[in-house]
Design a protein around this nucleic acid. Structure first.
Lengths: 346, 346
DNA sequence: AGGTTTTTGATGTACGTTAATCAAAATTCA
DNA sequence: TGAATTTTGATTAACGTACATCAAAAACCT
């Protein structure tokens, strides 16, 4: 009825506690036949080691390090804030979190930071690393070295494909772009017109993937709407404001806008200033104070959002599971993109 | 550096381990002055009891009972399936789950089931109960009695307001209705026309709340669209098919459809059969095999969804926290309504 | 067969907490 | 002041696992 323990396994397998322990923890000095007997007993009883008791016993502390891009934009600042918040809570779960920041978009600096972790004093080497990856060969190399040293690596928010990272935690940006198109296309149904794309995202990879998904669906399903070449706002509100204003004045047939990066404050100001009629439908990314107000005021129609708190929690859960060599579901880590209208703001 | 333990607290407070234990577990026989000294030491050290060690020691098993409406519709069947799945996993977390089912919409039967739990043999009395509530006075009374017996009660999916339940876990149905209106209104922008509402929900309360939210937003923001009186489909696909077909034939100006309950298969068939042009925009609830296909085929435009797995997990987490008298955030339990288009299907 | 090596068993301690027992000290009351 | 009572301390054994040590048994060599 109750969960079986190592004692039960020992009894059923007809071996001593020590032998069960040796099998369980992969120590050597056990004949293959005996090992198999123990394994069979475990299967028969449905034994699962009690991780809490195990961690208590081995006084395990999960040492986790986060390497984040330093204050490049408000999304990253939020992320850092969230990690700090989780760090406090995580102490409860035997998890000690350290954080370092590196210049954004600088593959070399990021790689150097990761190497530093591996080469630290033994007691300071983390069991796992969470990194917002910059897509560069040096980084791939550094990740591979960490894994070689037995350190689990999770990429957060922005993935590093074709690398040795253990897992990716974040949203599917292609799907996010497709979703934006699905919404905007339906919002602009039955109208001919142009769609402005405001780019200049926080991370090159996200930018590209979102735009890819967006144009896929626009072409396939909403051919009457013509996406324009992206307006590069460089994530800076002033820049976005200036360039979007120009575009709106030059092209009165802009019927929809997809903003896939930062600088939403500028977009909002441009829309208020030029106020074209009928107002274009707007889909943007990331729920912030700015975009929340834009939704409430009816300037934005929808905001696609990734819940960073959820992402950080998820990364920690998965990391602990990886460190314990506990099975972790494949789908875990694929964070869903949330859709907010003014009507379902949290 | 490391987490402080009871030993550290004892040392700092200058008392014995026994006294710390007595304070920690609310046993009596401690003078108020001493108790305060111990509390001060805990605060000073930032002591937090190690729940895992504590549970190990007191061999705690969380006994949780789920009372669900029996096979009333596919949503409830999914829910039951999900609970059974979680029951297997929950064993890992020292949680033993039992399940009972009662006839749907029958407040008396539900109340009787809840009373049975309280009056069971002491070792069978659960520490917490999760119930899909039917809104009735007897149920409120039974919940209140459970709480009086020290049993935590969580309402799942459908709440029991003005009752003694400890928490509610589920979506905000008013907000879901508002969101549906926000989407459908934008999908039907610039068109005059009627909006058909297909009702007959699984639970009266959800039905009412969703419709309320929907009409709120429709009136306020999309006055050019006129919601029709609801088509009562009684959650049965055949009934829905018949009545929606009739409505579509009778009123060619139906430009949007909001289906807030079950029977989506019937809705889909009606739309394919009558195939009005231009096709009406459709927003429905709950992602199932049926509605997924309808999205993929472009018959439905959006589906609002509650993630039952998430809800069940959330209920268990909160319940354990309540049983441990651990603080639990206020916002926890408010499950977000997810929005799916064909472009972001999981 | 004897010796060597490998495999297994027995035992104890630890992790941080709960919980019980019994003795010692402090406090209250007559 | 002495007895009765309350409060505190000291000690011990769990919970399920990890890990170390030493001895015993079994298997492997020549």
């Amino acid at each position: 009825m109750l969960r079986p323990t190592v004692h039960d396994v020992a009894r059923v397998a007809n071996v001593s506690l020590s032998t069960v322990d040796r099998v369980l923890n992969g120590r050597d000095g056990v004949r293959a036949a005996t090992r198999e007997r123990v394994r069979a007993a475990m299967r028969e009883l449905g034994y699962e080691r009690d991780i809490m008791a195990a961690n208590l016993s081995r006084k395990r502390v999960y040492k986790v390090h986060f390497t984040l891009p330093e204050g490049s934009n408000s999304f990253m600042r939020n992320l850092a804030e969230e990690v700090r918040a989780q760090a406090r809570e995580a102490a409860r779960d035997r998890t000690r979190i350290s954080i370092s920041t590196v210049p954004p978009f600088d593959g070399r600096a990021l790689a150097a930071d990761l190497r530093r972790l591996r080469d630290a004093a033994p007691e300071a080497v983390p069991d796992g690393v969470v990194v917002v990856a910059t897509d560069a060969a040096e980084v791939r190399q550094a990740v591979s070295e960490l894994r070689g040293a037995g350190i689990e690596v999770i990429t957060l928010v922005s993935d590093l494909p074709a690398s040795a990272r253990s897992r990716f935690v974040g949203i599917d940006n292609v799907s996010a772009g497709r979703t934006a198109a699905g919404l905007l296309g339906r919002f602009c149904r039955g109208q001919k017109g142009r769609i402005a794309i405001v780019a200049g995202s926080m991370l090159l990879r996200d930018h590209v993937e979102r735009r890819l998904g967006f144009e896929q669906v626009m072409h396939a399903e909403f051919a009457h709407l013509a996406p324009m070449p992206p307006i590069e706002g460089r994530d800076a509100a002033d820049e976005v404001e200036r360039r979007v204003s120009e575009a709106l004045e030059a092209r009165p047939d802009i019927t929809g806008i997809y903003s896939l990066g930062g600088g939403n404050g500028g977009l909002q100001r441009a829309l208020l200033r030029v106020s074209p009629t009928p107002r274009p439908m707007v889909v943007a990314h990331e729920l912030t104070e700015q975009s929340r107000h834009a939704l409430q005021d009816g300037v934005f129609d929808a905001v696609l959002h990734q819940d960073i708190g959820h992402e950080v929690r998820s990364a920690l859960d998965i990391l602990r599971a990886l460190i314990d060599a506990t099975p972790v579901e494949a789908g875990r880590g694929l964070i869903r993109t949330e859709i907010f209208l003014r009507d379902n703001l949290p």
